[in-house]
Design a protein around this nucleic acid. Structure first.
Lengths: 201, 201
DNA sequence: TTTGTATCAGACCAGACAGTCTGTTACAAC
DNA sequence: GTTGTAACAGACTGTCTGGTCTGATACAAA
């Protein structure tokens, strides 16, 4: 085996993720990614056949980390309590408490940058995003469904309510972007928790 | 006065809005806007000095329509009832009932496309977006505040709760984009209404 | 030592891009 | 009718972009 190129590949992905989240995919040139990652054209096109393939690789890595994050939080709250109400509320609180770090690392979400440009969805990125969204829904919805049935609230759809957490994340990212104030993320997660507490009570 | 060019300008804005919402701003070339609007390079750069100025004009028109939509809905619900709970719930229901038309006209929100590219925020577009967001917050928050105070729920911030409707809109647009299923918009607005009904009860 | 190959480095290229420039046309004021 | 000007039309240009190509270099197997 020759020298290991995965380090370079990761450096390129790191730089590209930052730039794409910040400026969008089309507005991020391959050259700027090369500069930011201190690599070269040769290195870039050795690891990624086209710019589109970079997009696929970015989403793949990002979605995997996202789902891992989800399962970590789920494991935490299911271990802490057997009460589905406490589990659901604690689940939201995990992200509420870590909102600042979550926003500090990245001022927005890669999904938004990718989904904004239809050409990329057609290039096979949206499947992976949908997988992640479904994982979030299927992680949270069963807990919610248990409570909603026990409370006799069949008019509230557990899947849609689970989706609402994802919706809040993405919407809050947009809100933060507009004002540049990352505190909206924590505030919106707080609101969702309070609404959940109310409807599950 | 020579012939009226506002019709051409509007045609360009219409085409650009569609293309930018669909593909993003950077991925939308001036030439494609010209083709789509059946105009010409001369016409385009007569009405817009640069592509950036097109972005400003797009946001200006879009935000104005957005705020007009808000005030229309507000007027409807405040005329229909004096009860702030009914007003708030009816307000969400207005959009819930018209979600399909709202999504049919445009499969996403221009704000997302613009805010995704930081360069445009620096070019003076985000101020107008923030103005629209503040208008939504200030339209809804007073109604919510009245109820929250009457119900003795000081832990819930009325401004953040008002913002949550905007957050839901934008987040739902993202969700719809990922799966291509526009029904998520209605479902998410339904969830927000149900959550509101619960917390304001 | 030789050979093979993954990993790069960077000059280079064809096309696309935003923006310019030189006109032409419609219409209004006088 | 003459003149002025807003409203175009479309050829043209310099720069940037994604992508290619020719090598160089490290390292592993034989």
């Amino acid at each position: 085996m020759p020298r290991d190129g995965t380090a370079t590949r990761e450096r390129i992905l790191d730089a590209a993720e930052r730039l794409v989240i910040e400026n969008g995919f089309s507005a991020t040139s391959v050259d700027s990614v090369i500069d930011e990652s201190s690599s070269s054209k040769g290195a870039f096109f050795h690891h990624f056949a086209t710019k589109e393939e970079l997009a696929r690789a970015l989403v793949e890595r990002y979605a995997a980390a996202d789902v891992a994050h989800l399962h970590s939080a789920l494991a935490t709250v299911t271990a802490a309590s057997d009460d589905p109400v406490e589990q659901a509320v604690a689940f939201v609180r995990v992200f509420e408490d870590t909102a600042d770090e979550l926003m500090g690392a990245q001022s927005s979400c890669l999904y938004v940058s990718i989904l904004t440009e239809r050409q990329l969805a057609d290039a096979g990125t949206s499947e992976q995003i949908v997988e992640a969204i479904v994982a979030w829904r299927d992680g949270l919805a069963p807990i919610l469904r248990t409570v909603l049935e026990a409370r006799g609230k069949p008019e509230i759809d557990a899947d849609d309510l689970a989706h609402h957490l994802f919706v809040t994340f993405e919407g809050a990212f947009i809100l933060c972007r507009s004002t540049g104030d990352s505190r909206h993320m924590r505030a919106q997660l707080r609101i969702v928790r309070q609404l959940l507490e109310s409807v599950l009570a």
